[in-house]
Amino acid sequence: MKGKRKLVGRFWTYVFAYLLAIIMLAPLMWMIVSAFKAPGSTVTLLSKLFTPPFTLESFQKVLMPGETAMMGRWTFNSLFVAIVQTVITVIVSSLAAYAVSRIPFKGKKFITALFLIGLMIPFESIVVPLFDMIVELNWTNTFNALIWPGMNLSLAYFILKQFIDQIPNDLFEAAKLDGACTFKMWWTVVLPLSRSSMAAVGIFTFVQSWNNLLWPMLVAQETRMMTLPVGIPTFQSTFSTDLAVPMASNVLASIPAIIVFLIFQRHIIKGISMTGIK
């Protein structure tokens, strides 16, 4: 009787999991199918969504260069900003976490408190003064404005510090006996052991930068400097009420983020949960 109840409970668990997966995947499938409909087709009715014809015309319109739609340029901007932000965030946050965790100096608690404050303050509350600074620096419509203010070092710092705190002191003592300096200990001890954690931080940073809308919309007013989240909505106004073309642009914009996630997905849980003892 007990085994039967356990089997029934497992059955309903799987049913709930599959239903939840279907609910989560339904909007994604709707977007993909709509992208292969002809421009101007009805994609808001389920009865007409899966009826032929299916075509690549919407993708051709998206990829066609023009004055108001520069998909290639927007993709380059998003990739460049996301990659640079990811590399800088991972390196700087790792060095900061290592310094606070392993180097004795006064003010360590104060630095940690500053990072904690950075997590508690919403970005929207500092948009106005931050934008004024960008205007004063004459950085509007430049990569400097897109890259530097958009980095989230606080979350990356806390994830990496939590990992570095768990690395055994014996490894650092052994490195000191071998004559390693402070930077070399980070390079030879912290960096190899924290690769999974750094990969997880890199994924979070890349996806956050790739999907960022508010800040690029404020500082990138010229078409050539727009990123994909800012440029894609222009298809809606350019091609009136046509939804097939914006859906095609969303499919293309989702590909890089999906590829990054699929390649590094095993590092997300592993990087956060694993300790320094292997």
Rank of each mutant, 00 (worst) to 15 (best):
F76R: 07
G179K: 00
A35S: 14
D165T: 08
G40A: 09
V43Q: 12
I147E: 02
L155A: 15
F183M: 12
T75H: 04
K176F: 01
L146N: 09
W148M: 08
Y18Q: 05
N211K: 01
I269N: 07
A175Y: 02
T205P: 06
S34F: 03
V260M: 07
V230A: 15
T182R: 09
F261Q: 03
W12A: 11
V189Y: 03
I103P: 00
L191C: 08
I268T: 05
E136Q: 15
Q166G: 13
T223L: 05
A97Q: 07
M226Y: 02
N212T: 01
I159M: 15
D170H: 05
F131W: 05
M225Y: 05
F123T: 13
T112N: 03
V33T: 09
P65H: 14
M71S: 12
G107S: 07
E136I: 10
G118V: 00
A156Q: 07
S93I: 00
K278P: 03
T227Q: 15
S58V: 04
M247C: 15
K161V: 06
A97S: 08
A156E: 10
V81Q: 05
L213S: 01
M1I: 11
I258D: 07
A175T: 10
N169K: 13
S209G: 06
D178G: 10
Q208M: 12
V15N: 01
A248E: 02
I134C: 11
R73M: 13
V84Q: 02
S101M: 06
M64I: 00
A145L: 12
M70G: 03
S154D: 06
I159W: 04
S240P: 01
F16M: 15
M24K: 11
M247F: 12
